[in-house]
């Protein structure tokens, strides 16, 4: 049986599939449609699929980036725009730093084997066990009183790098193990130093692993709320923090808040569609291969 032939299934099976897809994607689609509605349409009792789509909510959220005057905005609230910039900087910088440091550590652990793989996977699991809520008190205390980097982007980046490192090292290890050592030996024969071997020979070969690690790191840094909330001040708030701040108010402006939620959700959604294979590899690498 080749992979190209497909078995025919009975209709109930396809009905189940459709139901599952609707259930998985439905809430996301609903958020998208709500973000394209005026509040009048959101509140009205009529059928929820018939409405004039509008980008007004997005204009309100992103008002300080608009290059034109939107007629319906009388006061521009810059909070969200600033938060978006912060989120982007924090997520990108912490992803790059984590990958560089994590790669080097994973390589050292695999190739120079002075610690067993078991130690690393055990400590990865142990680190994964620590809930962010547990880090809340000490990180707040240390960052404020000892390092004095509370309220800065650098402070938030430092926590995210530390939080992500164990997982990144673990994932990259499983990819580096598969790089044939002969390749490296050949390179060394040709006179390459250890750093050259690493950057010119090993790194290009583990690109899929790097992609998976990058996506997971970015996602954690982009989505995290608790620690960012404790560490950020007015100028370094990230998007999740601003969203939570705006829903604790009594009256929720659903259109605008769904638009901000959608903007927060877009990067992960794009990653999912572009690199779903890498994501699944990353997710299954640890559990299935052991």
């Amino acid at each position: 049986m080749s992979a190209k032939t497909y078995e025919r299934q009975n209709p109930a099976f396809y009905a189940l599939l459709v139901a599952l897809v609707v259930m998985a994607v439905g809430p996301i689609v609903m958020m998208l449609t709500t973000s394209l509605k005026l509040n009048v349409d959101i509140m009205s009792d009529s059928a929820s699929l018939l409405f004039m789509p509008t980008i007004r909510n997005y204009e309100t959220a992103l008002c300080d980036f608009l290059w034109y005057e939107a007629p319906h905005i009388d006061y521009c609230d810059k909070t969200f725009g600033r938060a978006l910039v912060n989120s982007l900087i924090i997520a990108l910088v912490s992803t790059v730093i984590t990958l560089v440091i994590g790669c080097m550590a994973a390589y050292a652990l695999v190739r120079f084997r002075f610690m067993g793989r078991d130690t690393v996977s055990l400590s990865t699991l142990a680190m994964r066990m620590v809930p962010p809520a547990v880090l809340l008190v000490p990180v707040f205390g240390i960052w404020t009183f000892q390092f004095q980097i509370d309220g800065t982007r650098a402070g938030i980046i430092l926590v995210y790098v530390a939080m992500n490192l164990p997982f990144v090292i673990w994932i990259l290890q499983s990819f580096i193990v598969q790089v044939p050592i002969q390749l490296e030996e050949a390179a060394r024969m040709d006179g390459a130093g250890p750093f050259q071997v690493f950057f010119l020979v090993v790194l290009p070969l583990i690109k899929p692993g790097l992609a998976a690690a990058a996506i997971f790191t970015f996602r954690v840094a982009w989505n995290e709320f608790l620690l960012a909330n404790a560490l950020a001040d007015r100028n370094s708030r990230t998007v999740p923090v601003t969203i939570v701040n705006s829903i604790t108010e009594f009256d929720i402006d659903w259109g605008v808040i769904m638009a901000t939620g959608m903007l927060l959700a877009i990067p992960p959604i794009i990653f999912t569609f572009v690199a779903s294979r890498q994501i699944i590899t990353g997710m299954t690498a640890g559990a299935v291969k052991g």
Partner: peptide
């Protein structure tokens, strides 16, 4: 089973996990 579109299905299924928990809370 060996069905067409399995990879699309898997892609759609990982969406809920990738989206920020804050946003998931918001949707619900």
């Amino acid at each position: 089973r060996n069905i067409r579109g399995m990879s699309v299905l898997r892609t759609l299924f990982i969406l809920p996990m990738m989206i920020a928990p804050i946003v998931v809370g918001l949707m619900w």
